[in-house]
Amino acid sequence: MERLRWTLHDSWVEAERHLRVIPRNVELLIFATIQPIMFLALFAYVFGGSISIPGFADYDQFLMPGIFSQSLVFGSAFTSIGLAEDLSKGLVDRLRSLPMSRSAVIIGRTISDLVRNLFTFVVMLVVALLLGFRFEGSILDAVAATGLLVLFSYALSWVQAVIGLAVSSVEAANSAGFIWMFPLTFVSSAFVDPSTMPGWLEAVADANPFTVVTNAARALYNGLPVGNDAWLSLFWSVGLIIVFSTLATRRFSRSTSA
């Protein structure tokens, strides 16, 4: 009990360190927010006219949940970059020499990144609504959809934590954190119906957890039957958090500057 209390305390002190500086770097926040909005507008106007999806009268209603999902996933890359920076600057050495909780450094980091991603997401949602996106289901469905997306993004933050601690530099973290997100988000149901892909690729897209989460959120936002996708995406997110928080904490306990 005592240990849990200190873990929470230390995690909060650590999260506070990162949250405190968000308003000091407004530029970073603005660009982090502009990028997904730009994606939203580009996809909607460039592809919107030429793509039609069976079951969706309007491509925007199909596409925008996919872009929400992709943006949140991309946002998780902050975690690997931030941890790689702490490691290369010797800050991890300092923190590991303190009598603090081992997992708190990563919990605090992932929580603060979650807050930042949530902010970007809210701005993006407002822009989407202005562009004509509508919640077709109940408001509760929309909240549930958002919750599933945010939880998945948080789970990927833990994957990014392992990457950030495993690579040797911030530059490497920048590439290693982003590169796999392109196949992850494009070989999926985010932008098109996977049944239009070659058979083998369709199989990959269908198995992709990103597809599961995107489908669940899309169904909920559009007031369509969600089937097993909601439970499955919950299962994926919780599973990823359990596995990668164990790996990340273990990795952290052995990480030291070169």
Partner: peptide, 20 residues
Amino acid sequence: AVDERLTARENLIYVGRLFH
């Protein structure tokens, strides 16, 4: 090993609190 986004005072308080 300092966080250059924080002030000197914030860095010190941060480490102090992690020392409980």
